[in-house]
């Protein structure tokens, strides 16, 4: 299925990418993260386990166990620092 991914802040800069659409067999957000780190390079580094990465599914904060659906929007970003 196709999902739309958005990257923000330090992760967006490290990947030099703000958004992409990927065709994935991932079932959960955790699977998708693993798929992306499997690309190696900047993806492996900035999305690695142990790095502080927060996720959103369809613009709502989500756990990695959340299930993907066709056309979902997934956000990957560092801890938020507004206010």
């Amino acid at each position: 299925m196709k999902v739309n991914i958005r990257y923000f802040a330090s992760i967006r800069e490290a990947l030099d990418c703000g958004a992409e659409t990927v065709d994935t067999s991932a079932v959960t957000l955790a699977d998708l993260r693993d798929e992306l780190t499997g690309r190696g390079g900047a993806y492996a580094e900035s999305l690695a386990r142990g790095r502080a990465v927060r996720l959103a599914l369809n613009q709502v904060m989500a756990d990695e166990s959340a299930a993907l659906t066709e056309g979902a929007e997934v956000g990957f970003f560092p801890p938020v620092t507004g206010g």
Binding site: A9, P78, V80, T81, G82, G83
Partner: peptide
């Protein structure tokens, strides 16, 4: 402060840095 998706980047004499939570 903990849930709204904003990120701050500061310019300092040592260069730019993303603010840590």
């Amino acid at each position: 402060k903990i849930q709204a998706p904003f990120w701050k980047k500061e310019q300092t004499p040592q260069g730019a840095r993303w603010v840590d939570a």
